[in-house]
Amino acid sequence: MTKLLGFQGLLLILLAPCMIGVLRKLEAWLELRQGPGIFQPYRDIVKLMRKPAMRARTTSRLFAITPYVLFSVYGLLCLLAPVFHRATLASVDLIVVIYLLGMARFAFSLAGLDAGSSFGGLGSSRQMFVHLLTEIGLVLVIIALMVKWNTVSLTAIFDKHWELGYVNFLAEPELILLALSLALLILLESARIPIDNPATHLELTMSHKAIALEYAGRDLALIEWAEMIKLGFLLTLLGNLFLPFPRWADPMHSIGPSGLALAFGGYCAKLILLLLLLAFWELSQPKLRLRSIIGPSLVAIVLSLTAIIYTITLRK
């Protein structure tokens, strides 16, 4: 059973489109629209899968394999991290997570350059710019977590949360700082408002989408799906690092069906809460000027630095 649970990441992979569907539904509702059903992303993916992947004649093999790289990297991430149960395929630490993310982004940027179109190049340079800014922040968050929990292993942190069953934010204000910092970085990393608008039609403002414009059919489906998985993974990470389950949701790592059901239910509730927050945030914030992106990433850096200093000086 525990072996099987090691594949819980597959569930995340499969449910990610639905999660995006929920997010879009929420946003549509706030915009006074009805919006597509929550399963629309599946329909989009299935339809795209059936269409041929047209690639420009100028592109090399690099361009062709990038969607697969993206998909497998993000898929792997899901399999390596605990989702709603502690079991994973292998125990990894956060540093691996960061550099897997970086690898995917690097591959994607290369593909943008490979396409040889002007927008692809533009998108690549913007992607790298953003990544440069987020990477520092992410590393700092990890250091802070390490200082805090004495470990960078995801499973270990997950376990600590399970033992406690709650986070006392009042007693541990550094966790608030870290949660905010990570939340900001997730927004930056997954190309959402305030730095990129996933729904835009304006070629000149796109960064992520500018590269995706070059793809079609199956390739595009993979890329879109990979993006959804990525967001799902990052939100799970945020939830698991800072919003542990209440104790009753999973009495002592039980793997009984009722315990698992409760754990999964708790996980879903957590995710929906995060999605709601994300929807509120995206609608109440305009996109920033490209240059002002430095702002949020600086904020994230300062927040994590404060958290580190706080932990070191007051805790130890």
């Binding site: 915009e31 006074l32 305009p286």
Partner: peptide, 16 residues
């Protein structure tokens, strides 16, 4: 313009 700034909370209402 508001939609271009990705402030859709207001943009969609103005579109109505």
């Amino acid at each position: 313009m508001v939609h271009d700034m990705a402030f859709d909370l207001a943009a969609s209402r103005i579109a109505v």
